[in-house]
Design a protein around this nucleic acid. Structure first.
Lengths: 373, 373
DNA sequence: CGCATGAATGGGAGCGCTCCCACACACGGG
DNA sequence: CCCGTGTGTGGGAGCGCTCCCATTCATGCG
């Protein structure tokens, strides 16, 4: 039996050929029906569809990919050097959104964790060889060359979060600046006089934005600041921790330990702090611990606000007021953007991109009030 | 130019043919080198490898899959009706393990969230058509038909967690019974007299195991129980909440709300409860809340132990004593088992499976002591 | 009434690979 | 000196699909 080859035993389903035969049409016509080409008569279409149903035909992706030169798959790339605490809630939300949006397309979702140099190189090569049609990049660091590499090889890609304000690769981000501003305004509105902040690593754009929001809210409220009256530019937000004008800034690294250390540092610098805006919930958990150790009550002595609205926030005692990002929606938006990009990119024939969708998108953030403030 | 077809513009990398030409050998030989066949002379091997390096050759997966009849991909299937709280930490740990173990193979990881009937059918069909080589199933419910469906179409699959003690599909599980036993023994060892438990939904095998562990520990300690002296069978563990012999069992659903409600119920039934073993950390968080509301101190008045060692446990106040499962290792083990299955399964020619690896594996659990007990 | 025009269709070519058959070519024993 | 026996090797035949060219009709126009 010359038919059974390769993987053997794999009773691979019916082929297009068989469907066509059953419907009494040619292979080409069957293909046209299955791919929804308009150039097919109604009768024929019905016949083929019936045959598909009867035979339970499922197109062979490999064959399709090989013939069409597209893989019908997109990769979700997650760098894994990241502290898992940071990645957890954010990542699973993104995943949910991506998967939901992809459910209607019949594209596959390929998950790639990049954990070291070797796996990064592997993926780069893989992408360069066009083994996927598009790439979603989650939590990219400012110095990550991957986005540019992908652009160079003509691989459509969408980032979650910018690497800088000059980001030229398409991205979906949330409004970190406004979110931080809301948080700090809220603290001021609750009558807090000495509002400090614990920032993320300031080589990350999101962290800088949140710090800028902090400064902006204080300035707007008329509190003295480093640049009185001047609109603090996000790019310039990277300034010494002990800013002039008495603002209380401590830099940490989005980890709980970092938040704990930063809070102790703040208390040492100014024991009268009565509010802290933390650039992540996890850091807020660390700060909470430091406050408890110093005998301070939350929210009575010190009000606390976090960022992310992750599970940690709900489980803290008291529950943490925090800034919620629409993470699932960000995942969905990333997919929509990528699909649009993929629809236009591979067409070099002058067509000026029908509607690529906004290649950069900033989604709103929202303050969730809970017991900690 | 008759060469540029299909996807256009996709400057797909060099082909095997080109590599072979460059190395001055035939296509077949080049293929043999790349797939590590031993029947190649050292000289030739070196020449081909050099050509591969120079050209930056990356094999085309689609072509390979089509020709070989195997897809070089496995699917990780996650049912999504699941409450996200439960899924979060567990899922991301599994993912880490799976991905790590898969990094050395050059198999792709395909992620499939199943959210409704429609997507389930779609996946079933997809698998039946052998579009993946194997399937990893996470958090399967006792009545889920998917595992059997997959077995029927000859698709290798591995479960995380059994559906019952008679599970016949290969699985990796953790030792829920022993873990629960450790937890309850620990509580007894701390001098607690009235140890209650909050179980998961008792139509889930893991929940029944944990309950059985509770009973077993109490019986071993000589506390009166429903079946004095008898070894409580896991299968029989599904008994009325108000068990004879004074044991305190409340059933919940692995959610925080459920844990909260169950704790209130327990306190009502017996206000003198001085310890509670919760079958999940999340439920313990709910129980913690109920205890606080009732004015009881943890651990002074009531000691609390959870299960999972998730992030919630570390962030509770006081930090939660809990039973840790080696979740990442479970992910790794699942992949190893699946690969073994895939290596043997497709061979129908009588070969009695060289070393399929243990088709069922139960990994140990461990008690993590923290402030809550 | 004949011929250009378009719609619907059939089927060849080929995507890049693996499998496997056939073909060298080097041996050693009869 | 001829024939196994083995080791490397080349390349044909597809895998199931999409693309596209050719073909067949039915239609409308000159």
């Amino acid at each position: 039996m010359p038919a059974a080859r390769g993987g053997d035993a794999q009773k691979t389903g019916p082929t297009l050929e068989q469907v066509a035969a059953r419907a009494g049409v040619g292979r080409g016509t069957a293909s046209r029906v299955i791919n929804g080409s308009p150039r097919v008569s109604e009768r024929t279409r019905a016949a083929v569809q019936a045959a598909v149903a009867e035979l339970g035909y499922v197109p062979n992706r490999a064959a399709r990919a090989l013939a069409a030169g597209s893989m019908d798959a997109i990769a979700l790339v997650v760098p894994e050097q990241e502290n898992r605490l940071f990645a957890e809630p954010y990542f699973s939300e993104i995943l949910r959104g991506v998967s939901a949006e992809l459910a209607d397309t019949d594209k596959q979702l390929l998950l790639t964790l990049i954990r070291d140099e070797r796996s990064r190189d592997r993926f780069t090569q893989y992408a360069a060889a066009h083994r996927v049609d598009g790439v979603l990049l989650v939590s990219v660091h400012a110095d990550d060359p991957l986005p540019d590499l992908l652009r160079d090889v003509g691989m459509p890609a969408v980032l979650s979060g910018r690497r800088s304000s000059a980001e030229h690769v398409p991205y979906v981000d949330s409004d970190n600046l406004l979110g931080a501003q809301l948080a700090v305004e809220h603290l001021i509105g609750r009558g807090r006089r000495k509002v400090a902040t614990i920032t993320g690593p300031l080589d990350m754009y999101a962290a800088r934005c949140r710090l800028a929001g902090y400064h902006e809210a204080l300035t707007a409220a008329g509190r003295t600041g480093p640049e009185p009256g001047a609109r603090p530019a996000v790019e310039a937000a990277h300034r010494p921790a002990a800013a002039p004008g008495g603002r209380l800034v401590a830099e940490a690294d989005f980890t709980e330990e970092g938040g704990h250390r930063a809070m102790r540092e703040l208390l040492e610098r100014d024991p009268d702090v009565d509010a802290v805006f933390c650039a992540s919930d996890v850091m807020a958990a660390g700060a909470r611990l430091a406050l408890r150790e110093s005998g301070r009550d939350v929210p009575h002595d010190v009000a606390l606000v976090g960022f992310d609205d992750s599970a940690v926030a709900r489980h803290m005692d008291p529950p943490l007021t925090t800034v919620k990002q629409p993470i699932e929606e960000m995942g969905r938006a990333m997919v929509r953007m990528l699909l649009a990009l993929m629809g236009t990119e591979p067409d070099p024939r002058g067509a000026p991109a029908p509607d690529a969708g906004q290649p950069q998108l900033v989604l709103p953030t929202e303050l969730i009030r809970r017991g900690s403030s």
